[in-house]
């Protein structure tokens, strides 16, 4: 490297020891680094859900044919969603438990919409590791508490789809939904 004693290659050093070249170097590298970092944004962002995937984020369901005791499986964001018309016995069973005693304390009323307490809408995704629990179709194992049973690792959900036994940490998730009429719900 050049030394300051060599006249041909001398560099101007200010009194505080800072060279002009130091400033230019820091400025140039900073601009390059900023540009490089900004380039990462599209490369990362492109892996996030695309607009056509996001456009599939609502599901409309007609539940007029759903009799008490019956369930239907629908698809919401490419995942199963269970809609169950609870029988009075199932509602009583759910209300008979003190939510305070549960792992994830919620009452049936917390998990349904006022005026439609018999319609239970939950994601069919076990909160343990994401398997689809049994119990929505006729003849399937509903578990020890008459709700849903996950065959992967043995989580039992009750009639309000609350976790009662097994490894799952929380109740089956209730997605955002609303009634657009007495017999139509929109999820998402």
């Amino acid at each position: 490297m050049a030394t300051t004693t060599d006249t041909a290659n001398s560099e101007v050093v200010a009194e505080d020891g800072v060279r002009r070249r130091d400033f230019i170097e820091i400025a140039a590298v900073s601009v390059a680094a900023t540009g490089g970092l900004i380039t990462i944004l599209p490369l990362v962002s492109q892996m996030a859900p695309s607009k056509d995937v996001l456009a599939e984020s609502t599901t409309e369901l007609d539940i007029s044919a759903l009799e008490p005791g019956q369930s239907i499986k629908a698809v919401f964001r490419k995942q199963p969603v269970f809609v169950r018309n609870l029988t009075p016995a199932e509602i009583d069973a759910a209300n008979a438990v003190d939510p305070g005693d549960l792992r994830d304390s919620q009452s049936l009323a917390d998990r349904t919409i006022e005026g439609h307490e018999n319609i239970l809408v939950v994601m069919g995704v076990c909160t343990h590791l994401g398997c689809v629990p049994l119990g929505a179709a006729e003849g399937e194992n509903k578990g020890e508490f008459g709700g849903y049973f996950c065959p992967c690792h043995g989580s039992h959900y009750d009639t309000a789809a609350r976790i009662r036994k097994g490894p799952a940490p929380s109740n089956l998730e209730v997605p955002d939904y609303s009634f657009t009429s007495d017999t139509t719900i929109v999820i998402g």
Binding site: L41, P42, L43, S45, Q46, S50, K51, D52
Partner: peptide, 13 residues
């Protein structure tokens, strides 16, 4: 066209 319209930054890439 999916890349151009739907994928985030797909047009740029």
């Amino acid at each position: 066209e999916h890349i151009m319209r739907d994928v985030n930054w797909g047009w740029a890439i």
